[in-house]
Simulated scan of single mutants.
Amino acid sequence: MTYRSRRRGAPRAALAGLVLVLALGCTQPSPDPPTASPAVSGDRVQELMLTVAEMPGGTWEAGGPVSSDGFGQTICGVNTEPVTPEAVKLSRRTRPDGVEVSQTVRSIGPDAARQVLDALARAIPDCARDTRTVNGQTITYEVEPLASASPGVVAFTQTSVGGAFVGLSGAQAYFVRDGYLVAFSEIGADPAEAADLLHGLVAAVEAK
């Protein structure tokens, strides 16, 4: 799997705040949310979370507690959590150079997970800009797809061009593994590394 990265640069001081903004997105519902099928086992949700030792691309540390609470997110009009999950996990990892990665795994049912991924695949190429409200802050992102050689992965960059954190950017990747919706959000990596890092993160989950 290869990704085509874009030029990105950001002051490291604001990265800690933006990584959650990039990961959590907006809590407004999608106009046409996908329907849910019966959710699958929450045990597998935990199994698909990468440990610090399984993280590719250097030495990582735990950046925060793993959460069992769900949260809504809307990206380019697509609600990635259209129903309350049976189980959801969130982790944050940090590197000494300031790079941060968040991972989420949601159990919303195999059919709903696939519908969300398909909706993102349709929406991202036509979504030049996306405005979201996160924790009371309105942020406008410039969105650009990342080309992938492997089917089944939706990856894109998003750079803040209006509101909070102007100029900061990151990348995200979504895919379905064993019926679960898995997402990674990266921020702070050098442009030449960001795409390879996403590739390695996806591959590490697919190996589980």
Rank of each mutant, 00 (worst) to 15 (best):
P56R: 06
A121Y: 09
D32I: 09
D111L: 10
A112D: 12
G70A: 14
S30N: 11
I124F: 10
G17N: 08
N135F: 14
T2E: 12
T84V: 06
D111Q: 14
I139C: 12
K208R: 15
A36E: 11
E206I: 04
A119E: 10
D118N: 11
S102Q: 10
A36H: 08
S68C: 07
C76Q: 04
R93I: 01
C127I: 04
L50C: 14
E61G: 15
V161N: 08
L50P: 01
A62V: 03
L197A: 13
L201S: 08
S37K: 05
S41Y: 04
P110K: 13
E144N: 12
S37A: 15
Q158P: 09
Q103T: 03
D69Q: 12
P33D: 13
N135I: 11
P29F: 06
F71R: 12
Q28P: 12
N79A: 13
E54I: 07
S37E: 15
L15W: 05
E193I: 00
M1A: 13
E142P: 05
K89Y: 05
G58T: 09
E193M: 02
A121M: 10
P34S: 11
A121V: 07
A13H: 07
E142K: 07
A195F: 00
V205E: 03
G77F: 02
A147W: 01
V40A: 06
R122C: 08
I108H: 01
A195E: 08
E186A: 02
G72Y: 08
R12D: 08
V52M: 15
V83G: 04
A113W: 02
G109D: 10
N79C: 06
P85T: 04
R44L: 04
P31L: 15
A147G: 09
P11G: 12
R122G: 10
S185F: 02
V153G: 05
T133W: 05
S37Y: 10
T157V: 01
D178K: 00
G170Q: 02
P110N: 14
V154C: 04
K89R: 15
S30G: 15
S185P: 03
G58I: 01
M55L: 11
R122E: 09
P65Y: 14
E47Y: 01
A87I: 01
G188K: 01
D97F: 04
E81S: 07
G70I: 00
S107R: 00
P31H: 14
G167T: 03
A113I: 02
Y180V: 02
Q172I: 00
P125I: 07
T138L: 14
M1G: 10
A195M: 14
C76F: 03
A171G: 04
Q115R: 14
Y174L: 03
C26I: 06
G109N: 13
R95E: 13
T159P: 03
E47N: 09
T59N: 10
V182S: 02
F165M: 05
P125D: 07
T159S: 12
F184C: 01
A123I: 12
G17L: 08
A39M: 11
A39P: 09
G42P: 05
R122N: 12
V66M: 11
A183L: 02
G179W: 00
R44C: 08
G25M: 06
V21R: 05
V78Y: 02
T80Y: 05
P11C: 09
P145Y: 07
